[in-house]
Amino acid sequence: MSVVIVIPARHASTRYPGKPLVELRGATGEALSLIRRSWEAAQQVQGIDRVIVATDDERIAEHATAFGAEVAMTSTTARNGTERCAEAVASLGLTPEIVVNLQGDAPLTPAWFVEDLVAGLRADAVADVATPVLRCSGDMRSELIADRVAGRVGGTTAVFGHDRLALYFSKEVIPFAAADFGPSDPTPVFHHVGVYAYRPAALAEYPGWGEGRLEVLEGLEQLRFLERGRRILCVEVEARGREFWELNNPSDVPKLEAMMARMGLA
């Protein structure tokens, strides 16, 4: 039984071209690229057999190879990270038990998020995919709302049923709640953490379905699974005092660097 992490990375991002090579300074002041920090985060996960950077760009491939990563070259036609993961697994002839998509724009992803995700998928007999969700504090909910008011693409939120199976994901802040929440109050809003664990059969099917209507409208690749009736397990994870944010826009760079400084992450 094996678990493989694939880190999809492309240079031609619509919102932030060249994002995987953008440097982030940690608490010590050392500047390392986003893709390297994501790869190093993957190395901290227990129970992983292999970590692969999947890219269609030679600049990213050369950079990743230079710091010691295994690289799989993929086509330029992959429309999102899930398609790129599927292509990398197929091209390498891998037959793992579980494939983890650790997206290259979330270097602050704690190792236990991924470990809990893998354990959750293993324990659930019906889910095809699993993904972590983090209950928002009042402050985090306010940040998500502020991004939307300002017209920025910020974090994604998730809603799920009593069985923890996803009902929907959105870049809007859902569910709506009229109540005010204090800075540290738990809210009914769950921030979706952009990490996925797939059963290989579901991952292999995904590229052949074509883009779904909701997927295109929201710009969220996981909605293709829901539109095709596949089940996504939402695994609630705990921050344990760690701050978490994804690098979506250039304005997120100082935000991530400030978080790393506060947490003492090199």
Rank of each mutant, 00 (worst) to 15 (best):
V129D: 03
A130N: 08
A130E: 05
A130S: 08
T131Q: 09
V133R: 00
V133P: 00
R135A: 01
G138T: 14
D139Y: 15
S142D: 13
S142Q: 09
L144M: 10
L144A: 02
I145Q: 06
D147C: 10
R148S: 11
G151M: 03
R152L: 11
R152V: 04
V153A: 06
V153E: 04
V153G: 02
G154T: 11
G155A: 15
T156I: 01
T156K: 03
T156C: 00
T157L: 13
T157E: 14
V159Q: 09
V159R: 06
V159N: 03
G161P: 02
G161V: 07
H162T: 11
D163G: 07
D163I: 08
R164K: 08
L165V: 08
L167D: 12
L167A: 14
S170P: 03
E172Q: 14
I174G: 01
P175K: 02
F176N: 13
A177Q: 07
A178L: 14
A179H: 13
F181Y: 15
G182W: 02
G182H: 07
G182D: 09
P183S: 05
D185I: 09
D185K: 02
P186Y: 08
P186T: 08
P188R: 13
F190C: 06
F190D: 00
H191E: 04
H191C: 00
H192K: 06
H192C: 06
V195M: 03
Y196V: 06
Y196N: 14
A201G: 01
A202S: 15
L203N: 05
E205K: 08
Y206R: 14
P207Q: 09
P207C: 13
P207K: 09
G208S: 14
G210K: 09
G210N: 10
E211F: 03
G212Q: 12
L214W: 06
E215V: 10
L217S: 13
L217C: 07
E218Q: 15
G219F: 07
L220K: 07
L220P: 04
E221C: 06
E221M: 05
L223G: 06
R224W: 05
F225T: 13
E227C: 11
R230F: 05
I232K: 00
L233W: 03
C234T: 04
V235E: 09
E236H: 08
E238D: 12
A239K: 09
A239P: 05
